[in-house]
Design a protein around this nucleic acid. Structure first.
Length: 426
DNA sequence: TATCGTATCACAC
DNA sequence: CTAACGGTGTGATACGATA
């Protein structure tokens, strides 16, 4: 059966979230910055029009920002995550099959809906989300995920589509016209490197790729590209994934607000990051077998001595106990730490992850210890959910943290903090 | 010869 | 005022080691 897949995506998501609560930002050039107020990661249309590039380091935009009064905000993930949940909940009402693909996008399976009704259906999604959350979305529809993505892209860029593009409704002649006008890099799965390579093979536009020979593409570019072309032509190769599978790797890393030289600060940061990673691990009911710790100086400071190192340590028995994971992580840190470098970033990773239900005790492990550990971690997690993050924590996470990342202009947590709501009113 | 482990690449957002 | 460049995650592929 021919399927119908929709992709719904919030326009300029982070900026739109900020605008929903601060109308003064509307019709203005606005950007949201990455952690540490480093790079531009979301732009209003006005900011895009001024030539601000995605991923541009913010300090490089100072001149133009001053000239045009571009407003920059630190990222407020608590706000974005909460808004995301609202959008996803609304969209879940439009189909029983939903794949939450990212913080601001989801696929819906609309197979079986009358093709002629799809535009109206998409329009009602857009209207409801706008009314209930204040966020603008675009909707793209086709017979595969790749087509839905492409349709969404078309809806975003061509005003005549009014934010909804149903590829079924676009006649072949116009489709060819649209696809010929789009760069091959616009296709989902075709990034910078592949764009270059494809162009070297004479494939420049979406239409070129759609018409290319799949067997030839597989030989020259690999399976992924072959699937992409089949999907472009309406043959489904990438299924909707409704249940998010447990993470196979959990990472927690952060750049420092100011460079760090001493072991103590690094140890505190590693403890902090590992605590976060362990929380994520427990929240998905898993155990990790492998720990990685890394530290590095700033690769951008060419005049300074560079050092980057990591260490991977396998655990004797899989664990989700923050205390144990931190202990091992600090052993690794001790091994790789070298004095007299300006460290810019540190991080940890948990991998070789297994479900907790499948735990096998080794010869020396004690089930009693394990259940005590679980009880402690569970209560810690509960306290932190109820009373707020870090209400209870390991002392080695540190208290004042002068190295913590910069967040110079974060908006209030409008939807998740009573304190912030009150101060936002004042 | 098939499989494994690991590093590297490429991509998405 | 300074100096200043994100974070998380997946899958494919390459390649030497291992069973």
């Amino acid at each position: 059966m021919i399927r119908t897949i929709a992709l719904i995506d919030v326009n300029n998501f982070y900026v739109s979230c900020e605008r929903a609560f601060n109308p003064r930002l509307k019709h203005q050039p606005v950007v949201v910055l990455s952690n540490n107020d480093g790079c531009v990661i979301s732009r209003s249309n006005e900011a895009k029009a001024l030539g601000i590039k995605m991923g541009e380091p913010w300090f490089r935009c100072q001149a133009i920002a001053k000239q045009y009064g571009i407003q920059a905000l630190s990222s407020n993930y608590a706000l974005y995550a909460d808004m995301s949940n609202r959008v996803m909940a609304i969209l879940a009402d439009f189909s029983p099959q939903q794949e939450v693909y990212s913080i601001d996008e989801c696929f819906l399976d609309l197979t079986g809906f009358e093709k002629k009704d799809l535009l109206v259906y998409g329009k009602s999604m857009r209207e409801r989300i706008l009314k209930w959350t204040g966020l603008p979305v675009c909707v793209g529809m086709g017979s595969t995920k790749t087509q839905a993505k492409l349709a969404n892209n078309i809806a975003k860029k061509n005003i005549k589509f009014n934010s909804i593009c149903n590829l079924y409704k676009v006649v072949d002649e116009e489709k060819n016209h649209l696809f010929r006008a789009m760069e091959v890099g616009e296709v989902w799965g075709v990034g910078r490197r592949l764009t270059l390579k494809l162009k070297a093979h004479g494939i420049n536009t979406v239409l070129d790729l759609k018409q290319a020979n799949p067997t030839y593409l597989r030989r020259e570019f690999g399976v992924v590209m072959e699937k992409t072309v089949h999907e472009l032509n309406g043959t489904l190769c990438i299924e909707l994934e409704e249940v998010t599978p447990p993470r196979k790797q959990i990472l927690s890393s952060r750049s420092f607000g100011y460079s760090v030289r001493d072991y103590q600060s690094l140890a505190a940061s590693i403890t902090l990051y590992m605590s976060r990673a362990a929380e994520k691990l427990r929240s998905q009911g898993s155990l990790a077998n492998l720990i990685q710790v890394y530290i590095r100086t700033s690769p951008f400071k060419l005049d300074q001595a560079q050092y980057s190192n990591s260490m991977t340590i396998p655990l004797a028995t899989p664990s989700d106990d923050t205390r144990q994971l931190v202990k091992v992580a600090l052993l690794a840190l001790k091994e790789i730490y070298r004095p007299r470098y300006n460290y810019a970033k540190a991080g940890v990773s948990l991998s070789d992850i297994i479900p907790k239900s499948s735990i096998q005790f080794d010869f020396f492990a004690s089930p009693e210890n394990s259940s005590r550990s679980t009880a402690l971690m569970t209560i810690m997690d509960k306290i932190n959910v109820k009373m707020g993050r870090e209400s209870i924590k390991l002392a080695s996470e540190g208290f004042d943290r002068p190295w913590q990342m910069k967040q110079g202009s974060k908006s209030p947590n409008y939807t998740t903090s009573w304190k912030d709501i009150l101060s936002a009113q004042a």
